[in-house]
C-alpha cells in the first residue's frame, strides 16, 4: 500500500450552531482516487473547502504528508499550491485570457518564467483539446471548455492532490462527458484525487474507494462495486435509491392487458 498523502483527523466544522462536520477522519493515499457522495447539504463542499483552509475549522487537523494545512500555517500559500482545487462554477478569471488564467499562478506564486509556464500551459491545454483557445477569454468558451481550462489551471501547479467539487453539476448534459473524460485520464495517470460527484456511473468507473458522507461523518466506506451493489447501511441504501427509478417504474402496457395479472 502506498503512503498516506492527505490526512483529515477529527475535523469539526460548525456554522454558528449548525455542526456540518462532526469529527471526520479521512486518509487519502498516494495515487488513490476517492469519491465522496452524500445527500445535498451533508457537507461535501465544506469538507473540500476545509481541506484547503478556505474555511476556519473548530477542531481537528488536516495534513499534507506531515505538514499541517491550517489558516495559521505560515506557509499556507505554498501548501495550497500542492492541493489543486476545481470548483463547480469554474471560477476562471474573466478579465484574463485562457492562457493567462493558466499561467497566472505559476508566474506569480511559483515565480516561474513566463516562457516556461506558457509552454507547459499550452501542452496541457493541448492534452484537453483546447490549445487553439489559448488566446480566447473565458466568456467565449462553453461550460465544458471552461471547466477543462479550470482543470488545466490546477494541473499546471503540479499539485500532489486534486480536489474536485461537483465539477460537472453546472454543465449541460452533452458537456458532462468531455469533462469526466479528463478526470478519467488523470486517474489513469495515477493522480491522487478527491472527487465529489453525483455522477454515480462515473464514480463506479473512477473510484478506488467510495465514501458516503451523512450527518457530519463518514457513514460508509467501500470499494465502488461493493458500495453501489451491496450498500451496507440503510442510509446509503436509501441515498442510492434516489438515483434509480425501479421503485416507481410503471408496469409494461402488455402486462396490463394480461388478464392473469
Amino acid at each position: 500500500m502506498t503512503k498516506p498523502l492527505l490526512t483529515v483527523e477529527g475535523l469539526v466544522k460548525r456554522y454558528g450552531e449548525h455542526t456540518v462536520l462532526n469529527g471526520l477522519d479521512l486518509t487519502v493515499r498516494e495515487g488513490e482516487v476517492v469519491v465522496i457522495v452524500g445527500p445535498s447539504g451533508c457537507g461535501k463542499s465544506t469538507l473540500l473547502r476545509c481541506i484547503n483552509a478556505l474555511e476556519p475549522i473548530q477542531s481537528g487537523a488536516v495534513r499534507l504528508e506531515v505538514a499541517p494545512i491550517s489558516r495559521e500555517s505560515r506557509d499556507l500559500p505554498a501548501l495550497r499550491q500542492k492541493v489543486g482545487m476545481v470548483f463547480q462554477s469554474y471560477e476562471l478569471f474573466p478579465h484574463l485570457t485562457v492562457l493567462d488564467n493558466v499561467t497566472l499562478a505559476p508566474r506569480k506564486a511559483q515565480k516561474r518564467p513566463r516562457a516556461e509556464a506558457e509552454r507547459e500551459a499550452l501542452a496541457l491545454l493541448e492534452r484537453v483539446g483546447l490549445a487553439d483557445r489559448a488566446r480566447d477569454y473565458p466568456r467565449q468558451l462553453s461550460g465544458g471548455q471552461k471547466q477543462r481550462v479550470a482543470i488545466v489551471r490546477a494541473l499546471v501547479m503540479h499539485p500532489q492532490v486534486l480536489l474536485f467539487d461537483e465539477v460537472t453539476a453546472a454543465l449541460d448534459p452533452e458537456m458532462v462527458r468531455e469533462v469526466l473524460d479528463v478526470l478519467l485520464d488523470l486517474a489513469r495517470q495515477g493522480r491522487t484525487m478527491l472527487i465529489v460527484t453525483i455522477e454515480m456511473n462515473f464514480a463506479r468507473a473512477v473510484a478506488d474507494r467510495v465514501i458516503f458522507l451523512d450527518g457530519g461523518t463518514i457513514v460508509e466506506e467501500a470499494p465502488p462495486e461493493e458500495f453501489f451493489d451491496h450498500p451496507k447501511t440503510p442510509r446509503a441504501q436509501k441515498f442510492l435509491n434516489t438515483f434509480t427509478f425501479d421503485a416507481v417504474k410503471r408496469p409494461h402496457p402488455s402486462s396490463l392487458a394480461d388478464p392473469t395479472t
Binding site: R49, N52, P77, Q81, E91, F93, L104, A105, A109, R153
Partner: peptide, 24 residues
C-alpha cells in the same frame, strides 16, 4: 469564490487582490 479560487491556486492574499479581484 473568485478570491477563493485565486487563493486555492496558492496566490497570497495580496497577489489575489492585485491580479484577480482589483482588476475586475
Amino acid at each position: 469564490v473568485q478570491l477563493e479560487s485565486a487563493l486555492s491556486l496558492g496566490l497570497t492574499n495580496a497577489q489575489a487582490m492585485g491580479s484577480v479581484i482589483l482588476p475586475q
